[in-house]
Write a protein that binds this DNA or RNA. Structure first.
Length: 272
DNA sequence: AGATTCGCCTGAGAGC
DNA sequence: TGCTCTCAGGCGAATC
């Protein structure tokens, strides 16, 4: 499932193929996703030059020469591949953005939790991006910030850290891994965690995300980079998906429980 | 306001 | 082999 490192991996993979390329044609085979692809999407994109890419949280943005931006969210089963035009279609290939040089971006998403949207005149803030918390690599994000935001909150720290209004990009896998590294039990009430521990946590969140980006993301089921290659961070997971297996640090069996409707993994000995 | 639950989807895997 | 059932989950919307 694409979280921040996976989206960043895809962005880096896609960027060299799309920047300074002109969109020659867009094909929308399936518009029904998290939100429908706008009816005039293809028409609006045709002839536009892509001038850059960026990422906000788990949204991938293509910057167009007229100030519009394409918003792409991969949901949990989405892929964005760079292919040659005419590449054989498979089930769930929903959108193609063809470029002038014979390449194309192909959006594929079996579960259709993803989205492909057009953000017209991107000078004003987009409703889906407004209200998002800071990027984990920004100056604004640190232990003091987390500590300040968490005061008076009774929710589990794992839910708190996964809340995109607090900080973006810490999805289920990376929240679990960050909390393990910080030695914090995921069920602990966010408001009860001390400043020093939040400082460790903030730095672990950044470390985990950074390492995952360097490994090309985590491939558990669906994820692939823009070239179709798998990521490798799953080899470095300490707790996620390791229910009943021995903790890599102390050999105590890893435990699984459900927090906020999501499966959560932790070491009962290393995390307090 | 904060916390919790719901709903959107399909594929993989388990069980029969 | 093939069916049915359960689970996975990002995240906005609805509800408590």
């Amino acid at each position: 499932m694409p979280e921040l490192p996976e989206v960043e991996t895809i962005r880096r993979g896609v960027e060299p193929y799309v920047v300074d390329r002109r969109i020659s044609r867009v094909l929308v085979r399936e518009a029904r996703m998290r939100w429908p692809v706008p009816p005039d999407f293809a028409e609006q994109l045709r002839g536009r030059l892509i001038v850059g890419t960026s990422r906000r949280g788990k949204y991938l943005l293509l910057h167009l020469d007229n100030g519009d931006r394409v918003l792409i969210h991969l949901g949990m089963s989405g892929r964005l591949l760079v292919l040659d035009q005419g590449h054989p279609l498979i089930k769930h290939d929903h959108v193609d953005i063809e470029l002038g040089d014979g390449k194309m971006l192909r959006f594929h998403d079996p579960r259709r939790f993803g989205a492909v949207l057009l953000w017209r005149h991107a000078d004003a803030s987009h409703p889906l991006l407004a209200g998002m918390g800071p990027e984990p690599f920004s100056d604004e994000f640190d232990g003091d910030y987390l500590h300040r935001m968490s005061r008076g909150r009774s929710a589990a720290i794992k839910s708190f850290v996964m809340d995109g209004r607090i900080v973006v990009g810490a999805g289920n896998i990376y929240a679990a891994e960050s909390l393990f590294r910080a030695g914090i039990r995921p069920t602990r009430a966010a408001g009860d965690v001390s400043l020093p521990r939040y400082r460790v946590l903030a730095s672990m969140i950044r470390d985990v995300l950074n390492e995952a980006i360097m490994q090309g993301g985590t491939t558990l089921r669906d994820f692939a980079g823009a070239d179709g290659a798998a990521g490798y961070f799953q080899q470095d997971l300490y707790v996620y998906g390791r229910d009943t297996q021995p903790c890599r640090s102390c050999a105590t069996p890893i435990r699984r429980l459900v927090i906020g409707q999501r499966s959560s993994f932790f070491c009962p000995r290393c995390q307090r």
